[in-house]
């Protein structure tokens, strides 16, 4: 047995590299789940693309550089949160067939960055540097997501969501017989 121990130790150290593909079993455990009612009227969807790139030249004592480039697509939906609409914000005058609707301002309802649309386009490692670790790749993608959220106001998505909400509701109110329709946002 004592003779076998070094052999087992060597095998144990070497074999992880020979892990057969598809031999892993996936298991999922649910920790928390929650179901809730919402009332959101989504009126616009933007599909945006972003390149997430980083260059790591390392400390002075490290020889070589590392570069990485991801491309990702995000789908952003914006609209009106109808749960914030109070009955006082709908004013109807039957005689003049008029309605005034005061809607809450548009908000971003959903930011979806599908994992299947996050592609590692390029990775370049020179010298004695190691590849980007799982945690480093993850940290870079998280930064990318935060930048997408930061740049959202510049896209004008909220103005478009409000304009679309008005265009969406107006024909419906006309069909209901209203002749004077005022839709505003507060």
């Amino acid at each position: 047995m004592r003779k076998l121990l070094p052999l087992i130790a060597v095998l144990a150290l070497l074999l992880p590299a020979c892990r057969p593909q598809g031999s892993l079993q996936d298991s999922l455990t649910t920790r928390i789940e929650q179901l809730r009612a919402t009332a959101e009227l989504g009126t616009v969807e933007y599909t945006v693309r972003k390149a997430v790139k980083a260059r790591d030249e390392g400390e002075w004592f490290k020889i070589g550089n590392r570069r990485i480039l991801f491309s990702c697509t995000a789908r952003l939906k914006a609209g009106i949160n109808l749960a914030r609409l109070q009955s006082e914000q709908i004013v109807v005058d039957e005689q003049s067939r008029s309605v005034t609707l005061t809607l809450p301002h548009a908000t971003v309802l959903s930011i979806n960055i599908p994992p299947e649309e996050i592609r590692l386009e390029y990775e370049d490692i020179t010298g004695f540097r190691q590849r980007f670790s799982d945690q480093e790749r993850q940290a870079l993608l998280r930064q990318g997501e935060r930048e997408i959220i930061r740049d959202l106001p510049r896209l004008g998505i909220l103005d478009e969501a409000e304009a679309n909400a008005e265009e969406f509701l107006r024909p419906m109110l006309e069909q209901m017989g209203f002749e004077n329709i005022e839709i505003r946002f507060e």
Binding site: R36, A37, T38, L41, E45, Y46, T47, R49, D151, R154
Partner: peptide, 18 residues
């Protein structure tokens, strides 16, 4: 951030799951 597509939608989202 490059805008690829802008699409008008009309979605009523009435339930969420976390």
């Amino acid at each position: 951030l490059l805008v690829d597509q802008v699409r008008r939608i009309g979605e009523l989202s009435s339930a969420g799951f976390y």
